[in-house]
Design a protein around this nucleic acid. Structure first.
Length: 267
DNA sequence: ATGACCCGTCGCACGGGA
């Protein structure tokens, strides 16, 4: 069977609902991993998505973060949060908060995690340490599936550009997060656990960027970053027939600042 | 063409995004 899997940081599923429905109808993914829902799980537009033939497992608590898996292949073994997922201790908080940044499910022949890795804010910030801890915990969480025979992938907004080629101008990122050796080492540790970076085709220009800032004409100027990634195990990678970044979804008004990454599989 | 930030919020600016 052919299976189409995609990931999209949608930057508010409420604000993006017309775009989401339009994209589901045109791209027809079998499984779509979403990040940055910015809504509570019970506020997800389940009915509108169901009308197009999809069920949803959502994990969110309101204002920030939030992840979901939308599937027309059903759900088994849904897991919310990474096992041992670290929380974030904000400056004015007494206890760390476990944020809704990860959800896993088996959909038909494939198991996926939809992840929204912490941003890190600034190198040296407590949020940066949180980001590294979070990625290390992600690695521990996927070891068994990564080594398994079943097609498996981690999809989402990793908030790390894996190589210098994955940002429009390295000089603009001097001292910034998303490109540091320690963040990239955390991705390398995921690959060493048995996951491969499934590289998508760009549909225009030479690099498959997935994010362009809203400001300063970043999209028309193609000042982008590749930070939305698909990390698949050997069985997943062997089944890939195509992968591309759907930059069309970034055009016009009322879009997310990220655009979907699509992977086609023959299983 | 894709055009100079956008999201949610007990807001009337601000934190967060990257």
């Amino acid at each position: 069977m052919t299976v189409r899997i995609a990931t999209w940081n949608i930057n508010s599923v409420t604000a993006r609902l017309p775009k989401l429905l339009e994209w589901l109808e045109s791209a027809k993914p079998d499984v779509l991993c979403l990040q940055e829902l910015k809504c509570a799980a019970d506020a997800f537009p389940y009915e509108e998505v169901r009308a197009l033939g999809y069920e949803t497992e959502a994990h969110g608590n309101g204002r920030w973060n939030g992840v979901a898996i939308v599937s027309r292949l059903g759900f088994q073994d849904v897991v919310r949060d990474l096992p041992e997922q670290p929380g974030y201790l904000a400056d004015d908080a007494l206890v760390p908060v476990i944020e809704p940044r990860a959800i896993a499910a088996t959909c038909g022949p494939v198991r996926v995690w939809s992840v929204y890795v912490p941003n890190g804010r600034e190198v040296g910030h407590a949020h940066f340490r949180y980001k590294l801890d979070w990625l290390a915990t992600l690695r521990e969480s996927v070891l068994a599936d990564a080594a398994g025979e079943r097609p498996f992938a981690v999809l989402g907004d990793f908030n790390v550009a894996p190589t210098d080629e994955d940002v429009y101008d390295l000089a603009d990122f001097e001292g910034a997060t998303h490109v540091t050796p320690v963040e990239r080492a955390a991705l390398a540790a995921l690959r060493e656990a048995g996951l491969a970076d499934v590289m998508p085709r760009p549909l225009k220009y030479d690099r498959p960027y997935t994010y362009w800032d809203y400001r300063q004409l970043a999209f028309p100027k193609n000042r982008g970053m590749r930070i939305d990634l698909v990390y698949g195990n050997a069985a997943f990678e062997a089944a890939v027939t195509d992968s591309y970044v759907d930059r069309e979804a970034r055009k016009g008004k009322g879009t997310s600042d990220h655009t979907p990454v699509v992977v086609d599989l023959n299983l």
